[in-house]
Each structure stands twice: as C-alpha cells, then as structure tokens.
Amino acid sequence: MLIIPCPWCGERDESEFSYGGRAKPLPPLDAPANDWQTALHVHENPDGWHEELWFHGFGCNQWLVARRHTRTQEISGTRAPGEMS
C-alpha cells in the first residue's frame, strides 16, 4: 500500500486514490485511428520510473501525476496534471 503525496492534501494512503494509467496526453480527437490505437493499447510497461495518473477520489477530487518506480514502488514526486511535461 503506497503513500501518495497529493499536491493539494499532502501524504495520503493509496486507498484514497484510484489509478489512472500512464500520464501521457490523449491524441487530438481528430488524430488518425492508428494514433488512438497506439495511445490506448500500446504500453511501455517500464522496469523503472513511470509517470502515472492518480485520482484523489476520497480526498480533493483532483487528478495528479506521480512519478513511481515500478520495481521499488518509490514515489519520487507528484504534481498537478497541468504541469505535465
């Protein structure tokens, strides 16, 4: 069970959040089907750092981006999705 530092609420238990997958913008709505296909179904599944979305549904109802190491589960930081690289 992770501890996730919500940028708005501080450190909270994972049970307050739901997972939202990889933090990568969706393609534009008018992008070709192939782009959407790739965005939805081709995942990197890295052994290492992973930028991912979490929704603080039992907290502030905000989405956030966490940088998590998939092997050690370390979370090196979180930020608002608006600051997404």
Binding site: A23, N61, W63, G82
Partner: peptide, 8 residues
C-alpha cells in the same frame, strides 16, 4: 469527466 477537464 474530471479527468478530461483536469488532465486532457
């Protein structure tokens, strides 16, 4: 809906 508004 929140995800689309906040993230996308």
């Amino acid at each position: 809906l929140t995800r689309l508004l906040q993230v996308e």
